[in-house]
């Protein structure tokens, strides 16, 4: 049974300071112009208030945009490999939305299944997620259509829900969550009978996920991929902002003697993603890449990894420069004859 406590909003600054004194870096949403981005903060006062969704997810805490994989030194005919990057210091990410917390299950499924990706696992092990339920949503949100909710606890270590102007209900969900409480037990009080549900945003279910998953295996050759992607410019923004996109590229850089191998985020929306050296490209046009995006998230991943590769955060639709709306496109796919 989940341990429920309360914590005052006015105590969060103390909590942040105590976590930092305990050696943790605290990342939280910070407003930068029109964007809200996760950044390291030194107190609660820096945290943005009143946002529906952060512009980028907190994925970067676990999966940096660019990540060193190894260093090497090359001489005439010899090579020496050096120790990998230093162990990451523990991080607490505050203010993650429940949809983003759910996306961690997708990233885990990719990075920890079969071959254990130690670079990812180290960060995953040392990261604590303090999520905050959604009191507001917008027309791009569709978490409830893909199995989530504005108050979902999945993937969070602690979930906070504002139950009055100054009090959060705190659901302590994991050992990592308990560890946070144990740093500052005096800041938490026992919860009463208050429930979170009436304080959550109303996000209506927009499509039948089961119907979509059933439809996709037979939809590979449909014309819908072409009509939907005609305006796609292949910029990869949708992958960049997606909390559940995990694909990466590997590259080397060297000054001729010392160098490093690193990986960085990549996108199935790019033509070079699948381009063979011979010039052959199995996904040579944009409609094939758009199909891959939808199939991978809503058919291949559910089938192979038992996770849906989309948490309904709506970022891809908000950020798309040509206004491709994934929710509308999915509805059209479900309804297409």
């Amino acid at each position: 049974m989940t341990d429920k406590k309360t914590i005052k909003k006015s105590s969060l600054d103390d909590l942040f300071k105590k976590m930092m004194a305990d050696g943790k870096r605290v990342l939280a949403p910070v407003r930068k112009g029109e964007t809200v981005l996760f950044q390291e903060v030194d107190g609660y006062s820096a945290v943005a208030a009143d946002y529906v969704q952060t512009t980028l997810s907190a994925k970067e805490a676990l999966l940096p945009r660019c990540e060193e994989m190894m260093r090497f030194t090359t001489a005439q005919s010899t090579v020496s490999l050096e120790e990998g990057p230093a162990k990451p210091s523990p991080v607490v990410v505050f203010g993650v939305r429940p949809c983003d917390a759910r996306s961690i299950a997708v990233v885990n499924a990719v990075y920890l299944k079969d071959y254990n990706d130690a670079l990812y696992k180290e960060k995953s092990d040392s990261t604590t997620i303090i999520a905050v339920s959604c009191a507001k949503s917008d027309e791009y949100c569709f978490c409830t259509s893909v199995g989530g909710s504005p108050g979902s606890t999945e993937g969070s270590d602690i979930l906070l829900t504002l139950i009055d102007g100054d009090t959060y209900l705190a659901e302590i969900l994991t050992d990592k969550g308990k560890a946070v409480v144990s740093i500052a037990p005096a800041l938490f009080a026992a919860a009463g009978s208050e429930v979170k549900e009436k304080h959550l945003a109303d996000v209506p279910v927009q499509f039948d996920l089961g119907a979509l998953e059933k439809k996709l295996p037979g939809a590979f050759d449909g014309a819908v991929w072409i009509t939907q992607s005609l305006r796609c410019i292949g910029c990869g923004t949708c992958s960049y902002v997606c909390p559940a996109c995990t694909c990466f590229d590997i590259q080397d850089e060297t000054d001729g003697t010392r160098g490093m191998r690193f990986r960085c985020w990549d996108s199935c929306g790019f033509g070079q993603f699948t381009l063979h050296t011979s010039g052959h490209n199995p996904r040579e046009v944009q409609s094939q890449r758009w199909r891959q995006r939808i199939m991978h998230k809503f058919s291949y991943q559910p089938d192979q990894l038992q996770v849906v590769g989309c948490v309904g955060c709506g970022r891809c639709s908000r950020a798309c420069p040509v206004d491709m709306n994934i929710l509308q496109h999915i509805k059209d796919i479900v309804e297409a004859r």
């Binding site: 990719v110 079969d114 071959y115 995990t246 990466f248 590997i250 990549d266 993603f273 063979h276 199939m295």
Partner: peptide, 19 residues
């Protein structure tokens, strides 16, 4: 079969043929 690969271990995401 061959497809463009980076990681070789099912993570980088580009060599899939269907699922």
């Amino acid at each position: 079969l061959e497809n463009r690969m980076k990681c070789g271990i099912g993570k980088c995401g580009r060599c899939n043929v269907g699922k």
